[in-house]
């Protein structure tokens, strides 16, 4: 009995340690971002801030220098929003339609098509950079937000298709047959029968795509320029712009601003994420 309690205690201790290990960087970022430079210079990294102030946040948002311009991250943030919303919606919608076709309207060779799409999940995106740059040039959308949306849609399709296809495989085919006998066609079955059953997997895909696209740096830095650059690139530019003093509080605030949307998505939709993943696991 005592031995059992000892082991249980040990397990909890390990878990608490792991939690702290991952939470400390967040704590340091939060506290540093509300300290002033004087306190950062004289104080301890882990000490609790004495005078909480949000000046660094304001500076990061609207007046910190990113290269030659000094307008803060607000413009980049807006770019990211303009990029992430269409990219997430389009890639999720197309993934749902792909998954619906590949699971419920199979055609000769559909398994091969699926295998090829699946291949995209495992492909390192670096190999895409040159051909994609070429394609964007041909399409005339290089260095634009539209171009970035295009890139993210294309690269996200593999995983969104995989998610939806595996979820839809678990929906009985008889449901589709019944709807066909009821007189419904491809799209009516999709909108009226399939989509209402898809809430968990839609949530999973939205979160997944939002996080990936918001956090993307590679495509942002390669395929955008000037007024279309996303926040990850802005953050990088700000941290790399050298002035006479390194303003840690502003950098920390900027990093938190960049991370806030994904944190918010997890906080508000996290339960759907877990639910959706497990629903998919059971059925798929």
């Amino acid at each position: 009995m005592n031995q059992e309690r000892f082991w249980r205690g040990l397990v909890y201790a390990a878990l608490v340690f792991a939690a702290l290990y991952y939470l400390i960087p967040l704590y340091v970022m939060l506290t540093t971002s509300v300290k002033d430079m004087e306190e950062i210079r004289t104080g301890n990294l882990l000490s609790f801030p004495q005078n909480i102030g949000f000046a660094a946040w304001g500076k990061a948002w609207s007046s910190a220098c990113t290269g030659v311009s000094c307008d803060g991250l607000s413009g980049y943030f807006l770019n990211s929003v303009k990029m992430v919303i269409p990219a997430v919606l389009i890639s999720t919608t197309l993934g749902a339609i792909n998954g619906y076709v590949l699971s419920k309207w199979r055609f000769p060779g559909s398994n091969i098509v699926f295998a090829m799409i699946l291949f995209g999940v495992f492909m390192p995106f670096q190999v895409l950079l040159l051909p994609m740059a070429q394609t964007l040039g041909w399409l005339g959308i290089a260095s634009t937000t539209t171009g970035l949306v295009f890139v993210h849609v294309v690269c996200g399709l593999a995983s969104t298709t995989l998610f939806f296809r595996n979820y839809y495989v678990g929906i009985p085919d008889e449901l589709i047959k019944a709807a066909r006998l009821d007189g419904a066609g491809f799209w009516r079955i999709f909108w009226r029968i399939i989509i209402p059953m898809s809430t968990p997997i839609i949530m999973v895909t939205l979160i997944w795509q939002f996080t990936n696209i918001w956090n993307d740096f590679l495509f942002g830095v390669v395929f955008s320029a000037g007024d279309s650059q996303p926040i990850t690139v802005g953050l990088n530019n700000m941290a790399n712009t050298s002035t006479n003093v390194k303003e840690y509080n502003v950098d920390m605030a900027a990093a938190l601003i960049a991370a806030l949307p994904t944190i918010a998505v997890y906080v508000f939709c996290g339960k759907y994420f877990v639910k959706g993943l497990s629903a998919g696991a059971v059925k798929g």
């Binding site: 009985p172 008889e174 449901l175 047959k177 019944a178 709807a179 066909r180 006998l181 009821d182 007189g183 419904a184 009226r192 029968i193």
Partner: peptide, 15 residues
């Protein structure tokens, strides 16, 4: 849908 038939399925296939 144009055959004028209706079907009851083994799994019932209710939406």
């Amino acid at each position: 849908k144009d055959r004028d038939i209706a079907m009851v399925f083994q799994s019932y296939a209710l939406y």
